[in-house]
């Protein structure tokens, strides 16, 4: 149904309609985990990974539901299947690669209930992407999320040293910075056209 070229989908998901800064998806980890650069990078990696897995799941579920003509089960099956798949993958990583698990592990359960993941599943279905397009979309969204998180962490590490009134510290300041970042990202609009 949708004939958008892959590069356009990627640019669109990562920069133009950045999940965090334009769609406001995944704000909780964005505010919570963006304190340190190292954590932010790892979290970003984990999110990219979960996005790819859930994009694959969502594609399968959508086609299954179309086949059995039960659109009303979409939301409930998206959330249940994605959550359980991520758990399975987590166990699998724990068994096979303890190093990778230590790097990503603590974030995986957190990410499952992240709105960015469910949002991705819903958007790719709404846009009617095929399998390859969905995966590129997921990768773009993950990269965009990581970019936003890392930029934010970089800024916040500098802000630690700045003299800011006590009252502004914390979430309020982070939100202001996010607003400026979001303004900057508006400059990317039109790239995907």
């Amino acid at each position: 149904m949708s004939g958008d070229p892959l590069w356009s989908i990627f640019l669109n998901a990562s920069l133009v309609n950045n999940f965090v800064l334009a769609y406001f998806l995944g704000i909780c980890p964005f505010l919570g985990v963006s304190g340190k650069l190292v954590t932010a990078t790892r979290m970003g990696g984990a999110v990219c990974f979960v996005m790819l897995v859930s994009s694959l799941c969502a594609y399968g579920i959508h086609h299954l539901l179309v086949a059995i003509n039960a659109p009303y089960l979409q939301l409930i099956s998206f959330i249940v299947v994605i959550a359980s798949t991520v758990q399975l993958v987590e166990m699998f990583i724990k068994k096979t690669s303890p190093t990778l698990f230590r790097a990503l592990g603590i974030f995986l359960p957190l990410i499952t209930t992240n709105c960015a993941i469910l949002g991705l599943a819903l958007f790719q279905t709404n846009k009617g992407y095929d399998l390859l397009q969905s995966l590129v979309y997921a990768l773009g969204a993950g990269v965009g999320f990581t970019l936003a998180l890392v930029l934010m962490a970089g800024i916040r590490e500098k802000l630690e040293l700045a003299s800011v009134p006590d009252m502004v510290r914390g979430t309020a300041l982070t939100l202001m910075v996010a607003g400026v970042l979001s303004l900057a990202f508006m400059g990317f609009a039109g790239l995907g056209a």
Partner: peptide, 9 residues
């Protein structure tokens, strides 16, 4: 979107 961040902040 940026307006949302500013207002909430």
């Amino acid at each position: 979107p940026s307006g949302g961040f500013f207002t909430l902040g």
